[in-house]
Amino acid sequence: MKEQRINEAPAIVTESLNLWYGTFQALFDIDLEVSRNKVTAMIGPSGCGKTTLLRSVNRINERLGYVRTTGSIEVLGHDIYEPEVDLVQVRKQVGMVFQRPNPLPLSIRDNVLFGHRTHRERGVKVSRQDEDEIVEKALREVLLWDTVRDRLAGAATELALEEQQKLCIARLLPVKPAVLLMDEPCSALDPNGTEAVEELIWDLRGDYTILIVTHNMAQARRASDECVFMLLGKLVEHTRTDKMFVAPKHQETADYIEGRYG
């Protein structure tokens, strides 16, 4: 894995990606390059395919069974639709955060360790002390350590929503993913929670490539380096965020971000 991290291929590259749900085509010839260790926001009206595109990057869409894909998606320079690719390895490298926080019905500590234990080699014993370190590191990374350090054995589902969402991010980190996919991670949170999670996302860039779907223009503007605008299953525009919000190239983009559409 090391030399792949060093090589400078973009984090995610899709080439003429088409996707059908049954007979309905949801994505049309998507060519996208997501830069490493930056936050890329995907915006666009409901049904434009941004969530579909996001979900293709760790192949969760396939669970529906009637999804058909053509084209390719490369993560860290490797096509994840190749037949020899193991989904478990894809999901280890590409973590996903959902709209509604979904902590598992376990303690906070066990939530953070869940992924790590899942991917641990059979028979490998990890001391309690090492596990404690993993938990502390992950929780510190998501700025949650000071809030929960005294109740790691408490139920994760009793945390405030915003803390739950941070925990859901934290539990991805111990397996050292390269990419974090976030599907409207703040839409279930109140304004304070939203701000806290946005700050966290901004904080995590540099260490992780973050691809985030949002309906919130202000959020895309505040908390992303690059911005992708999608419409009706097509990628319309992809530029630096400051550029897109100041001088969008396409009329549709301008209409959408100024609220004249969708």
């Binding site: 989904l87 979904n102 598992l104 869940f114 992924g115 899942t118 397996v175």
Partner: peptide, 25 residues
């Protein structure tokens, strides 16, 4: 169902999901 999805998305197999989350609950 959200618990199962959360597990699968962290790369857990069906059996790992059953043993660690579904059965205990």
């Amino acid at each position: 169902q959200a618990f199962r999805e959360a597990c699968w998305n962290m790369g857990a197999t069906r059996w790992q999901t059953i043993r660690k989350i579904v059965l205990p609950n």
